[in-house]
Amino acid sequence: MSTVVHRDLADELRLIGSYDAEACMNCGVCTAVCPLEIALLPRRLFRYVELGLADRVRDESETVFSCLLCRACEESCPAEVHITENVRVLRHWLLEGSH
């Protein structure tokens, strides 16, 4: 199975808004405190972006739009990533569909 890498994906998101997921240390605190218990959100999703795996992000559209934006994850994030704003930027990117 081949994977198309969209190398400029993270840069594209940074043009939309304040996207800072590259600071994520992949520690998993966000996943542990998520009220929706979504394993994907947000760290694996952010990794897909950093790796340019646009199709994986698109496939997880429902997960991205399920996020409550409640900031429970952000309150506990040791890297102080603005997780909810990153999710909002991803929503914008998915809605625009210009990719």
Binding site: P35, L36, E62, F65, S66, L69, C70, A72
Partner: peptide
Amino acid sequence: KLTWCCGGPAEALYPDKAAAV
């Protein structure tokens, strides 16, 4: 600051997920 979400923000798109939270 460590409050637990009511689930409401998911209701417009995914009412079942909102109800579970």
